[in-house]
Nucleic acid binder design. Sequence first.
DNA 1: CCATTATTGCAAGTCTATTGCAAATAACAC
DNA 2: GTGTTATTTGCAATAGACTTGCAATAATGG
Lengths: 140, 140
Amino acid sequence: MLEATTGQGLRATGRRMTRTRKAVLALLERTHQPLSASEIFSQLQEADVAIDLVTVYRTVNVLKEIGLVVQLDLHQEGQSRYELKEGRKHHHHIRCQICGKIVDLLLCPLKKLTKLIEARTQFIVGDHTLEFSGLCPQCQ
Amino acid sequence: MLEATTGQGLRATGRRMTRTRKAVLALLERTHQPLSASEIFSQLQEADVAIDLVTVYRTVNVLKEIGLVVQLDLHQEGQSRYELKEGRKHHHHIRCQICGKIVDLLLCPLKKLTKLIEARTQFIVGDHTLEFSGLCPQCQ
DNA sequence: CCATTATTGCAAGTCTATTGCAAATAACAC
DNA sequence: GTGTTATTTGCAATAGACTTGCAATAATGG
Ligand SMILES: [Mn+2]
Ligand SMILES: [Mn+2]
Ligand SMILES: [Zn+2]
Ligand SMILES: [Zn+2]
């Protein structure tokens, strides 16, 4: 079983592993797309898991705080998406403008660029976002 | 005078150059930071320009449609920002997490990467976003 | 099983942005 | 300038994502 579903990270911060948190984690585990809060809500409803949308928001925030989940803010979607971290490395995404499919780009090309930017701007770079959009093979 | 303020792009699309559109363009021209709709609104109020926030939203959308303005969606700001295009090239930004200052990064390192992504994913890449955040020299 | 404390659901609220519609005004022809 | 007409504006209402207050519920530890 995944570390995620055992609740270790939760208990270590004085939190509890609950029915709804298990359900959200299990859904993210079996889904291979980053999901928005409203998608998590409706997919759990279809799976007959009683949960309020407010609880989904609170749950993804907790999971993000303890590092189990990553929040994505893709371009021109008015909502955040969430995906399991689960030992995976930092990476970026491309999203189809027609069907909305999101594919992982299993690379981050920005280490060198970060150094260059720090030299040029005198900023200390903390974070970055990099997202692509386009047409997936099916929608071309 | 800038092409922007003469209204050519507007008239070419059956639109009109108005007092409020002039005011928004002039503000963007004299400001060297990308501004949000509410910032445009309050800065124009301070300059004694009567304008409604709704009109600001409609104005930036029109200016974006005719290509005079670019819309930016920076990471973890719940609002869009707008900056004059005015002959400037495609570029990216870095934003200070403390004071909010936004600095232009006058480069885009993604041409080669785009080719690689197209080869790997079979997507046709249409667009991308790339934004950095960190600490500016003053806030370190 | 009980007591404690975190979590949940519901309602209400916040914030950014959009839409309907009547009144105002820019553009254009006289 | 005057008048005509289509565009634009302001106001109010609305939409959508997300948050907050609070009483009821449920997970933990003993
Ligand atoms: Mn991913
Ligand atoms: Mn810029
Ligand atoms: Zn990266
Ligand atoms: Zn670029």
